[in-house]
Design a protein around this nucleic acid. Sequence first.
DNA 1: TCCGGCCCGGACGGCGGGTAGGGGTCTTCC
DNA 2: GGAAGACCCCTACCCGCCGTCCGGGCCGGA
Lengths: 213, 213
Amino acid sequence: MIRVVVVDDEQLVRAGLRLILEAAEDITVVGEAADGVGALEQAHRLRPDVVLLDVRMPGVDGLTAAPQVIAAGAKVIMLTTFDLDEYVHQALRVGAVGFLLKDTPPRDLAAAVRTVAAGNAMLAPTVTRRLIDSFAERGPARRDAARERLAPLTIRELEIVREVARGHGNADIARRLTMSESTVKAHVSRALAKLHVGNRVQLAILVYDADLL
Amino acid sequence: MIRVVVVDDEQLVRAGLRLILEAAEDITVVGEAADGVGALEQAHRLRPDVVLLDVRMPGVDGLTAAPQVIAAGAKVIMLTTFDLDEYVHQALRVGAVGFLLKDTPPRDLAAAVRTVAAGNAMLAPTVTRRLIDSFAERGPARRDAARERLAPLTIRELEIVREVARGHGNADIARRLTMSESTVKAHVSRALAKLHVGNRVQLAILVYDADLL
DNA sequence: TCCGGCCCGGACGGCGGGTAGGGGTCTTCC
DNA sequence: GGAAGACCCCTACCCGCCGTCCGGGCCGGA
């Protein structure tokens, strides 16, 4: 049985959600709250599997409450009437695994709760679309290309180049890796030659593109 | 009526998909193909709204065919038995707006076709989950923070700092922006002071995080 | 044995970063 | 209207760090 808490400032919405969810035999609504504070309190006291959290609410809103609710051990599905980019970005960043519009059909809502409870994620189709778009443009296209370029480097060289990309000077790197500054210079120099770049900034750019922190 | 083409190397799978989709009254399967070449041919000839494309196929597989199918004006939903990260990344990068596993229930499959035809996107829950994860860690969190840090810079300083982040030397920058090398150095120096960083590599890192190319 | 990776030293030229200051425009305040 | 000040852009000069080139030594594996 999946235990759910619904949080919304409008009592009518809460009632509607409860009605929809209770209709499913494997879901039970164990609590309600009208704002972020109540949500957090219920999350700690009732230990629900899933919390449906309205984005906008008077007092502490859903977005600010979400991180702590998640920390309390619950999966969070955000609910909203409008899927503004700002909301979505922030919600997903703080760890929400669902983002639905309030016009979601009942059966999809129940399905979302099950999906999330199972450790997966569920987004409204429009949200999914935009998430894919933002992923595609920033995709791992350059990443693979950059890694290809970094391939000829030896282990040690790569290690030093990563330090370079962190913005450290040669002296710093020498200290961190406990070696002579001359050695660091030699490694950097050979890396520059292998990668056909002129200075350490371009070195850092490559490491950055390759996504190696 | 949503016009669909199904592409899979196994005839049995194609028949199954056709059966499922034809059961929906607003969907009609107008064509089938067994590989990427056939998919592209059908896409051009039949102009379907949606193409269901198997990832792995003998000959030209779905991933390589997808870009051209999309270019032909169809929405693409990728199908696969295993949701390997590599597949997902590549598929979404080339413009697929759906990614489903072959164990997707019939009604979800039809729903996915409708969703995609409406211009939105539909992913398998497990895929959505991992997409969110990769978004959260690489999200616009640092971007905004970095832009905040770069705020105190003047227009000109920012202009120069961006050149720095491209890996250009001071002399290069001076030539590009038609000013003295001394001037460039001064700007860089003041930028370093304002941002409280020690060298130009860290400067480049900030610009990179801020996503200003 | 030779080869390749990893480590070190020294010296040199050039680039990078700090400092000081001149000229320009705009606001503020008398 | 004019002076003071703030801010930005530009420049010249000095020095430390970076990058290169020359050495060389130590190890592991083909």
